[in-house]
Design a protein around this nucleic acid. Structure first.
Lengths: 213, 213
DNA sequence: TGTAATACTACCCAAATGTGTAATTGTTTG
DNA sequence: CAAACAATTACACATTTGGGTAGTATTACA
């Protein structure tokens, strides 16, 4: 039994092409296609769809919100983004909204079909460029984190601060006086170019100076 | 001209199989293979390698450290992990250490060859299961972040705190009195189960209650 | 060997932070 | 409509935090 598929794509030409292409596959059956996803959740339910191909730039609510809607009501429906946007925000927002795959529109028809097959097998297909972006996202931290020149001791104290310890608690755990802790933190604040603890914590986590994941 | 390739894999049988498999490809030439990666950086340089296939579980320093070593000295050399480990930590650590791809050992020979080709074209090949893990990593945040029941106003104020604002600055930017800010933060601290600003910032960032990337 | 850098301590003081209690207003929801 | 909740302000009080200044001990490095 072929998977029931919905297409959301505002470009009429492309929408029809996709329909033709995917209906050609014995594994898929295009149940319907729409030029916007304002009522995507209802439409998914109506057709009892297994799988959705979702454009991002559409009139009304965009594809990212569309995914969110669908996933809220029907978490088990697979959604593969299909868009020409390759910027970090769009990619990460889509994934956070619940997308199961992210294919750029320069993907060949064969690759797209493979991706859809892949997602139905529990995979998370994505274009090579997207994969690269995601890898970069993980890596970026490390590189700039070591530019603050914190001493081992300072990192230690900063880590305790991040974990929610007060000066007094840090002093106890580090076996030094509270005044020493103050001094260290003062130096740390200077090195991080911040002027209070909350800012330091934010910076430490954003630049992954301390590990906590 | 074929790409020069190094293999790090402690299982002799598998190492030899890989050598045979990859030497069969006209695009690749296995320059050398080693049962450990303690001197991986030197060996990469010696053979002027373009590409490395790296196991994780090896005697001496593991594959994760191996990648780090190689990438420190030769950032342009591509490294593809090839391992049976599919746990989050190993995957994310490898990527952070600089891996360009992550293939599980249940990958078919053809897929492995494709992955290596892919990585030389600037892609970031990974097994479907790994891709899935990575998608989950992005998603998980959202789900547990909404369990704190912060009101819109509270999120707004928490976000200002995370950005390093003092109570007074938050008061100004939110057009409310400083006492109101205090009260809001007090409520926020209760909801987050913390008892000071630094802890709240840490929790907010870890659970991605506020966005800042 | 001498001079940085690092780690540590101490004290003072002003400002910021966190807690408790209490009261007003508007909105939502049962 | 009443109860619950959200947002707001106020004030008092204790504690914490952050900055400045100053000094000692140890280690590392040139």
């Amino acid at each position: 039994m072929p998977f029931k598929l919905l297409i959301f794509e505002d470009n009429t030409r492309l929408r029809q092409s996709l329909e033709l292409l995917l209906n050609d596959e014995t594994n898929f059956h295009v149940a319907a296609s729409y030029p916007d996803c304002d009522k995507a959740d209802k439409q998914v339910e109506k057709h009892n769809a297994d799988l959705v191909v979702m454009d991002i730039d559409m009139p009304g609510i965009g594809g990212v919100e569309g995914v969110r809607k669908i996933k809220n009501t029907n978490p088990d429906v697979k959604v593969v983004m299909h868009t020409m946007f390759d910027d970090d925000n769009r990619i990460f927002d889509s994934i956070c909204a619940g997308a199961d795959g992210y294919m750029l529109k320069n993907t060949s028809p064969l690759q797209l079909v493979n991706a859809l097959q892949d997602v139905m097998n529990g995979g998370a297909p994505m274009s090579p460029f997207v994969a690269q972006k995601i890898f970069q996202h993980f890596r970026q931290a490390k590189t700039d984190s070591e530019q603050f020149n914190l001493t081992a001791r300072e990192k230690e104290i900063l880590e305790l601060l991040v974990k929610g310890n007060s000066y007094k608690m840090i002093a106890d755990k580090s076996n030094v006086s509270i005044d020493t802790v103050k001094k260290h933190l003062q130096n740390i604040y200077h090195k991080l170019h911040v002027n209070c603890g909350t800012e330091a914590v934010a910076k430490a986590l954003q630049h992954k100076i301390v590990k906590f994941d």
